[in-house]
């Protein structure tokens, strides 16, 4: 989704619709700290077994600090997906001409050199789905003013802002 490489706004990122159907449910935790690297991690070995149910929510420790949290449900009408852009993006660029959809798009014959940007279309797919996640705070459960809770109300407001206005 980051569009840093897409400086001109010329390119399209195609979402493979079949991946939305097939995405298996995932377990998600939103941590109150930044882990600097994105990589595989033995969450099930260290984190999950340490989660304890307390009277007023969940408790766990991470790097020796106490985290308190609770389950947050994805708002009604929405679905949660984890998406990854296809890793072969660079390769795809080189293979641009052979890629099926691009050949279909190119209605002007094969002799004409293909514009460079055609080769930069990429694909993205859902790798997992979720309908809830665990929200964690340091020492205390994130309160009602937490930014992420505000963000979760956005879809309802967006629906109002973008609804067609009634005719006179």
């Amino acid at each position: 989704m980051e569009s840093g490489e897409d400086a001109t706004g010329r390119h399209r990122l195609h979402l493979r619709p079949d991946t939305l159907r097939d995405a298996a449910p995932a377990t998600l935790h939103l941590l109150p700290c930044e882990v600097l690297a994105s990589r595989p991690a033995p969450v099930e070995r260290f984190f999950t077994p340490a989660i304890r149910q307390r009277a007023d929510g969940l408790e766990v420790s991470f790097r020796g600090r106490t985290l308190r949290g609770e389950e947050v449900v994805v708002p009604p009408g929405l679905a949660g997906y984890v998406m990854e852009a296809d890793e072969k993006a660079e390769v795809l660029t080189g293979l641009g001409r052979k890629h099926k959809s691009r050949v279909e798009d190119d209605g002007e014959g094969q002799t004409r050199p293909e514009p460079l940007e055609r080769g930069f279309d990429r694909c993205i797919g859902a790798t997992a789905s979720f309908d809830r996640f665990h929200l964690w705070g340091l020492e205390t459960i994130p309160g009602p003013d937490a930014k992420v809770r505000g963000a979760l109300t956005w879809p309802r407001l967006a629906a109002a802002v973008h609804a067609p206005v009634p005719e006179d």
Partner: peptide, 22 residues
């Protein structure tokens, strides 16, 4: 903020929303 997603860590804790646009 960071995510744990199954058996992996995602460094940025971003949450994307796709909402209908007029």
């Amino acid at each position: 903020h960071s995510w744990f997603i199954n058996q992996s860590v995602q460094s940025d804790g971003h949450l994307h929303f796709a909402t209908p646009m007029d």
